[in-house]
């Protein structure tokens, strides 16, 4: 059994993949908890889609992929704030128009590069098995940056998330803090795309945090257990990928989903026991 678990990680590419996805699990736990609690999943998905065209553009002009994707992600994140204030229609409608348009633009860009067809699936589904050491540094940097920003602004962040109107009345910079949160979401998505790809990136943000929310009504324990569930999902997912020869992005997300389903069963069984026991 131990052999079964440890053997795959004797390969350097597997241990790099584990290091990368483990850091992404930590990052996703910190940010995903807020995404779940504040109902920002759809905005997260929009950011992932526009990041894709950022990646495409970065490939085309030969600039750093993370920088290209991050620029597009941030423009989307801040565009959302602008849309919510000024749009004459529901902001989710406006957002859907914008991000599907941006995504199509990215697809067309990539199709102008004839040699690129092979990598398209890597962008859509992730290519964590090919992750390089330099990319691990980027991810680690994002983890440290996000953790520091959250630690420093924690009390203000919690106040604004719980009671934005009261916080504004108390003189807190509510809009700036909300944009900072969207900026952190954008960063988390951009560095996670490498691992699980554009289509599945939102699952990594949402599923572990949602699983954690089944068990606790306290914010910090929720983040901690989201990290725990995330780490389980990436480890199990990588093993599944190794033994089933399936794309790791998909197996990681599937592992997270199965964890959620099991947790849901456990928590509702526990609730029934408490009621009748």
């Amino acid at each position: 059994m131990i052999e079964f678990v440890l053997e795959p990680f004797q390969f350097a590419f597997m241990s790099r993949a584990l290091a990368g996805t483990a850091m992404i699990a930590l990052l996703s736990a910190m940010i995903g908890t807020f995404v779940v609690l504040k109902g920002l999943a759809f905005i997260g998905d929009a950011i992932a889609h526009t990041s894709f065209s950022g990646l495409a553009l970065a490939i085309l002009v030969g600039m750093n992929l993370y920088v290209g994707a991050l620029i597009f992600a941030l423009v989307t994140a801040f565009g959302v704030t602008f849309l919510q204030r000024t749009a004459k229609m529901r902001s989710d409608t406006a957002l859907a128009i914008m991000f599907t348009g941006a995504f199509s633009f990215g697809v067309i860009l990539l199709s102008t590069m004839p040699n690129f067809a092979g990598d398209l699936s890597a962008l859509l589904l992730g290519s964590v098995l090919g992750i390089r050491v330099q990319e691990l540094y980027w991810i680690g940097g994002a983890v440290i940056l996000t953790a520091s920003i959250l630690a420093v602004t924690w009390d203000h962040f919690v106040f604004v998330s719980f009671d934005p109107v009261g916080a504004e009345a108390a003189g807190l910079p509510v809009t700036r803090l909300q944009m900072l949160l969207l900026g952190l979401i954008a960063t988390a998505i951009v560095v996670s795309i490498q691992a699980v790809g554009m289509i599945l990136v939102v699952a990594l943000l949402i599923t572990p945090a949602a699983t954690a929310s089944l068990f606790t009504k306290r914010l910090v324990p929720m983040m901690m257990s989201a990290a725990g569930f995330g780490l389980v999902a990436v480890s199990v997912g990588l093993l599944m990928s190794y033994y089933l020869s399936a794309p790791p992005g998909a197996t990681i997300v599937l592992a997270a989903t199965l964890t959620f389903a099991a947790a849901l069963a456990v928590s509702s069984a526990r609730r029934r026991l408490l009621q009748f026991g």
Binding site: L37, D155, D163, V165, L172, M222
Partner: peptide, 22 residues
């Protein structure tokens, strides 16, 4: 206007009264 689903204890809410001074 308040997000009552947000996981926060009464004491943590009350301490927000100090956040305005911070």
């Amino acid at each position: 206007d308040v997000d009552w689903m947000f996981p926060i204890s009464s004491l943590e809410v009350v301490m927000q009264g100090r956040t305005a001074h911070h």
